[in-house]
Design a protein around this nucleic acid. Sequence first.
DNA 1: GATTTACTGCAACTCGATTGCAAAGATTAC
DNA 2: GTAATCTTTGCAATCGAGTTGCAGTAAATC
Lengths: 136, 136
Amino acid sequence: MQTEEEILKIKKVKNTAVRTVVLRHLLSQEKAQSLKDIENALAYTDRSSIFRTLKTFEENKVIHSIEDGSGMTKYAVCAKGCNCDPKDLHYHFYCTNCDKTFCLFDVPIPKIQLPENFKQQQANMVVKGLCDNCNK
Amino acid sequence: MQTEEEILKIKKVKNTAVRTVVLRHLLSQEKAQSLKDIENALAYTDRSSIFRTLKTFEENKVIHSIEDGSGMTKYAVCAKGCNCDPKDLHYHFYCTNCDKTFCLFDVPIPKIQLPENFKQQQANMVVKGLCDNCNK
DNA sequence: GATTTACTGCAACTCGATTGCAAAGATTAC
DNA sequence: GTAATCTTTGCAATCGAGTTGCAGTAAATC
Ligand SMILES: [Mn+2]
Ligand SMILES: [Mn+2]
Ligand SMILES: [Zn+2]
Ligand SMILES: [Zn+2]
């Protein structure tokens, strides 16, 4: 596992106090985090600073965002070497019981045969159901 | 193509003036519609009535909703025989240029191999890029 | 050290979604 | 048919995630 400093250096994002603590929080979580999640976890960091940090991270491929339909965009740290282009994309799983959203890094997304002349740039693939912990 | 009345009868949803006009509008569009889209198209129908109509339609599988990441949930009429279970799902395509969202009824979603003990109930699969009209 | 640029915190604001409530309409019970 | 009951509708108010303006602070550059 890389440190926050290493990741930011590789992605050419200047290291600041807020950025370090936001990235550290994201790295420490097994599930994708919403702005609200991060705000709650970092009691003394302002929401808009976290918001702008997330935008910066996303623009620089430090993290990727997930629209899981919960009403809040979730964020997760990109895998090492990820460029967020179609070949790097992966499914996400949203548990309808416990509200956790996971990156399914191990399940590849197949190449999707689009209609004539459509061009894929990105994708947001969310499977919804029960996670292992809730499916009992 | 079935009429609004036929669809509502099949799906056991009582026919009302608002429901007929909302469903008619959805049927007339090639792209998925947001609440705002519908509100704009139906100048004399109240937003909250449309909103509740969409909820009723979705509960009764008259329509399905799409979270395309545009910030507004989109709605499209279900295909004949659709039960909105995993086998009936299809990809959606969101054009990042013209903001249109399409149902890709003809492209099947493969069965996704989830981690041990995860259970799929639903899915929201959005491919983003340029539609045929914008990819020139 | 002065100047310029980037980051942060606070408050205000936007806008899609949602709800409470009372009036209007439809259905059912007498 | 009329009264009682349930459903739908319209309006206004509210919620909450996301976003922005601005001024103060910190960092980088000259
Ligand atoms: Mn992910
Ligand atoms: Mn669809
Ligand atoms: Zn769960
Ligand atoms: Zn387009």
